[in-house]
């Protein structure tokens, strides 16, 4: 007669396994939810640019308005230039941008908006004064605008948005002349 022996239980019990799997699934769901919430919608050429707030620097408001949404500029061609005072290539194109703005500003059909990417207010103020910039300028608070515009390489980058709010052109790096800016604007007019 043989004596039957039951093998001893080893490892983690079923209840513990269920708890562990539920914990892991919950954790993954939480991480996914958080990442999805943190992610901004991004613009692509040919698509409508998701709306964002512009809180202008004092002295660089648009028609006396200190705060507005991008959608408030619908009906105009919007040129958004992302820059920073610590960025050397930005200095190269700053006079060209100002010259182009001087060409368009009276027409009231094209709006230039400078977006100052991670900068100090003092540095930004000094930069704007140094290059005698007169077009509207706003800080990129929490890098929200550059994130929505899907900034790719660094600064400067310039985004051309048409009257319907569609992103038409992206220039990475500095402009060589005002003519280069004008030719892009003409192509989307």
């Amino acid at each position: 007669m043989t004596e039957e022996t039951t093998p001893p239980k080893r490892g983690v019990s079923l209840t513990a396994q269920i708890i562990i799997w539920v914990f892991i699934a919950g954790l993954l769901a939480l991480v996914g939810f958080g990442l999805n919430r943190a992610r901004n919608p991004m613009a692509a050429v040919g698509d409508r640019v998701p709306d964002f707030d512009l809180v202008y620097y004092k002295g660089y408001e648009y028609n006396g308005t200190a705060q507005m949404k991008l959608s408030d500029l619908r009906g105009k061609i919007v040129v958004i230039n992302i820059w920073a005072s610590w960025c050397k290539p930005c200095e190269q194109e700053a006079p060209e941008l100002e010259k182009a703005w001087q060409f368009y500003k009276d027409g009231n059909d094209v709006v230039f908006v400078g977006v100052d990417y991670v900068d100090t207010p003092a540095g930004a103020n000094e930069y704007l004064k140094k290059f005698s910039i007169t077009f509207p300028n706003a800080p990129d608070l929490k890098s929200n605008i550059s994130s929505i515009l899907n900034r790719q390489m660094g600064v400067p980058e310039t985004y051309f948005i048409d009257r319907e709010g569609i992103l038409r052109n992206v220039k990475i790096g500095p402009f060589a002349s005002p003519g280069e800016i004008q030719s892009i604007i003409q192509s989307i007019q």
């Binding site: 610590w86 991670v118 100090t120 207010p121 003092a122």
Partner: peptide, 25 residues
Amino acid sequence: PVCESTPLDVCPTDACKDWREQIRT
């Protein structure tokens, strides 16, 4: 805010110097 994973107190860039000055102010 610009360079990746560099504490502001040891960051050698001009931008970081500006931010430290801002903290001082």
